[in-house]
Each structure stands twice: as C-alpha cells, then as structure tokens.
C-alpha cells in the first residue's frame, strides 16, 4: 500500500437521509488506471465529488500522497494535484477552445503566454488543434469530451478523475480516446481514476476495477476477476446484458 497515490478511506455521504456513498474504501496506486463501475445511482459520481471537494463527506477521509484533502474546496483539491472532468460536460461556452485550456493551465502558471503554449500543445495531443479558435459551445459532443480532458490535463494533475468521458461516443471515437489515455498513462505515468460504463474500454485500460452498488463497494480486483464475480454480474454486468 506504500505506493498508493490516492487513498479513499471509509467514505460516507448521505443526502436527506439517503445513503449515497456508504463506507467506501479503496486506493489508487501511483501510475495505474483504476475504473469505478456500477449501475446508475450506485454512488460513483458522488464519490468523485467527494474526492474533488464539491461537498465534504459525512465520514471518512481522502488522502493524496499523504496529504489530507478532506474538506478542501475544489480549487484547493486541484492545486493539490487532482484534475477532473464532468459527466455532463461543462465547457466555458463563450470562450474559444484554446481559452478553455488556457484557464486550466493558469492553475499552475502565472504567465498567460506560457499557459497558452501549454494549451496549444495539449490541444495538439487531443487532436483539437484545428478547432482551437472556435467557441467551445460550437463543438460536437465527442470534441467537448476531449476538451474536458484537455482542460483537466492543463492543470498538470498527478491524478486525473474521468467521469464517463467515453459515454455517448461512437466505437471509433472510444478507441481514439482509449489510445490517448493509455498513452498518457504509459508515457507520462499519469494515474487515472475513471468512472466508466463502456466495459470494453474498462477491460482494455484498467489495472484494477472497483464496483459500487447502492453506495457500497461490492467488489475490488483485476478486470478479469471482476467480470467473473457473481455479485457483480448480478447487480451490474448481467443486468446490462439482459
């Protein structure tokens, strides 16, 4: 456990009495890709929001490389090294694609010019360079998803939280995104925690999978173990194929 980058310990969150997340514990090892899966309403996005500081947990702690993040606001969590995307994309609509990413880069840069250079490099990498000067609101959904990733990466995170960046993409687009993510992970050692429904991508990318159901962790293991787990099949995988 000494190589854990992110440690989520006994995390719980209730909304008006409803337990959205209940005693969830897992770790994300440095340099790995961990997938968080489960049926709708399982508490995946709530867990993300607890990690990212959108709201504080009722119980439990979140630690990044030994630094306690619990209770920090999102901007402090970002400064600590966590970048995130939103399930429902949130581009800065009236700004250009490039400006969107510049804002991200300014999280660690004082100079706008330097931030712009970094933004351009990232747009190149996410294949958005030819759209750089268009208003972000004019992008198609797949491009908006990539913009989310580019903007989060611009904050130079040590851990990237991806909330369903593959949902709504066509198979070829999924493959392209998977390539980009794999590349970021392998070449730069970026640690990724992803919520994902596209099982093909989960199997292809993740080193480990954590399964949530009704706010509780029901399984935690290698992708091969997870797809063979009877509880997972019953609550999630089986239901999906039926």
């Amino acid at each position: 456990m000494s190589d854990a980058l992110l440690t989520v310990d006994n995390l719980s969150k209730r909304f008006r009495g409803l337990k959205a997340v209940s005693n969830v514990t897992f770790t994300v090892p440095e340099g790995r890709i961990l997938a968080l899966i489960g049926p709708n309403g399982a508490g995946k996005t709530t867990s993300f929001n607890l990690i990212a500081g959108v709201f504080p947990p009722d119980e439990g702690t979140v630690t990044l490389k030994g630094q306690r993040l619990t209770g920090l606001k999102p901007n402090r969590v970002c400064a600590a090294g966590i970048g995130r995307t939103f399930q429902i994309v949130k581009p800065f609509g009236h700004l250009t694609v490039e400006e969107n990413v510049v804002v991200g880069a300014l999280a660690r840069e004082r100079s706008v010019e330097t931030a712009r250079r970094q933004a351009r490099a990232l747009l190149e990498r996410l294949e958005l360079a030819d759209q750089a000067q268009r208003p972000a609101r004019s992008l198609t959904l797949p491009d908006r998803k990539r913009l989310e990733v580019a903007r989060a990466l611009a904050t130079r995170p040590t851990l990237l939280l991806l909330d369903e960046v593959l949902a709504g993409l066509r198979p070829t687009e999924v493959d392209r995104m998977v390539e980009v993510l794999r590349d970021l992970n392998r070449r730069e050692g970026l640690t990724i925690l992803m919520i994902e429904h596209v099982m093909r991508a989960v199997m292809a990318l993740s080193d480990r999978v954590v399964v949530l159901d009704h706010g509780e962790k029901i399984a935690d293991g290698s992708p091969a173990d997870i797809v063979a787990d009877p509880r997972v099949i019953e609550s999630y995988l089986g239901a999906e194929e039926a």
Partner: peptide
C-alpha cells in the same frame, strides 16, 4: 471569464 461561464468548472480547474 471562466467563473462567468461556469463557476463549478472554473473551481475545478483551480
């Protein structure tokens, strides 16, 4: 500008 466009997303990028 980022705050104007989307405060939550702005906060998430620091």
């Amino acid at each position: 500008l980022a705050v104007r466009e989307d405060a939550e997303a702005a906060e998430a990028v620091g």
